[in-house]
Simulated assay, not measured.
Amino acid sequence: MKFKAISAAFLAIFLAACAISSKQVSDDEIGLRKISLLDEQDVSIKDINWTAQPAGMSKKLDRSFENAPPFISHDIEGMVPITKDLNMCTTCHLPEFAKDAGATPVPKSHLYDLRNNKDKGGVLHDERFVCTTCHVPQANVNAPKANSFKADFRDKNGNTKSNLLEVLNDGVK
């Protein structure tokens, strides 16, 4: 009983200290525009120069960090929207086609049911068919803020290959 009372008092003091020391951030301080997030008067969509190289002719882009979804390095006009019945990405990126197409094959994790710990036997898992959920085309733009992040890959091929399925449970016991 005494322990519960002391714990409750400590928790109350901790929460009060957090509330006192927390600095509120206004909408004007969030984001790159430095104006209220609710102000949409001056919002304009910039004309973005997307990678225009067709599939098979583009330069492959390194991953941003270990097991990051790679960027789509080619033009995707005419390939979207992706539906369960029509997915143009699979015509080149499924393992049985990738080598001949010169494409990056989907990793083993896309052919595996992670929830039920079951190999799908080379079939793309139902939760992985909308490729653009994770993979996005690379835009040719200047970054609004400098980025000095340098990825540290554990595997020498980590910038071009995924080993997610092999390391998914690293550190979990």
Rank of each mutant, 00 (worst) to 15 (best):
M1E: 13
K4S: 10
K4W: 05
A5K: 12
I6F: 07
S7Q: 07
S7W: 06
A8F: 05
A8G: 08
A9S: 13
F10D: 13
L11I: 10
L11Q: 13
I13Y: 12
A16D: 05
A16M: 12
A17G: 15
C18A: 15
A19I: 14
S21Q: 09
S22R: 14
K23P: 03
Q24C: 06
Q24S: 14
V25W: 09
E29P: 01
I30S: 02
L32A: 07
R33P: 00
K34P: 00
K34A: 01
D39R: 13
E40W: 05
E40M: 09
E40D: 07
D42Q: 07
V43G: 04
S44A: 10
W50E: 03
A52S: 11
Q53R: 07
Q53E: 14
P54N: 11
A55K: 14
A55Q: 05
G56A: 05
S58Q: 12
K59S: 08
K60E: 14
L61V: 08
L61G: 04
F65Q: 11
N67T: 03
A68V: 10
P69A: 08
P70S: 02
H74Q: 04
D75Q: 02
E77P: 03
G78W: 03
M79P: 06
V80N: 12
V80T: 14
P81G: 03
P81Y: 04
I82M: 09
T83A: 06
K84Q: 10
L86V: 12
L86N: 15
C89S: 08
T90S: 11
C92E: 09
H93G: 02
E96D: 10
F97G: 03
F97Q: 15
A98F: 00
A98K: 01
K99P: 00
K99W: 01
K99R: 12
D100A: 15
D100Y: 06
P105H: 00
P105S: 00
V106F: 05
P107S: 03
K108R: 07
K108G: 01
S109W: 04
H110G: 07
H110E: 04
L111Q: 02
D113F: 01
D113K: 03
N116C: 06
N117K: 15
K118P: 04
D119M: 01
V123I: 07
V123E: 15
L124C: 00
L124H: 01
L124P: 02
L124G: 01
R128T: 08
F129H: 13
F129E: 12
F129L: 05
V130S: 13
V130I: 15
T132H: 10
T133G: 11
T133E: 13
V136N: 14
V136G: 14
P137A: 06
A139T: 06
V141H: 07
V141S: 14
N142A: 10
A143N: 10
P144F: 05
K145H: 09
N147A: 06
S148W: 07
S148K: 12
S148G: 08
K150Q: 11
A151W: 05
D152K: 15
D152F: 03
D155L: 06
D155N: 15
D155I: 06
G158Q: 04
K161Y: 03
K161C: 02
S162N: 01
N163C: 01
L164C: 01
L164P: 00
E166P: 02
V167D: 12
N169A: 09
D170A: 07
G171T: 10
G171R: 14
V172H: 09
K173I: 07
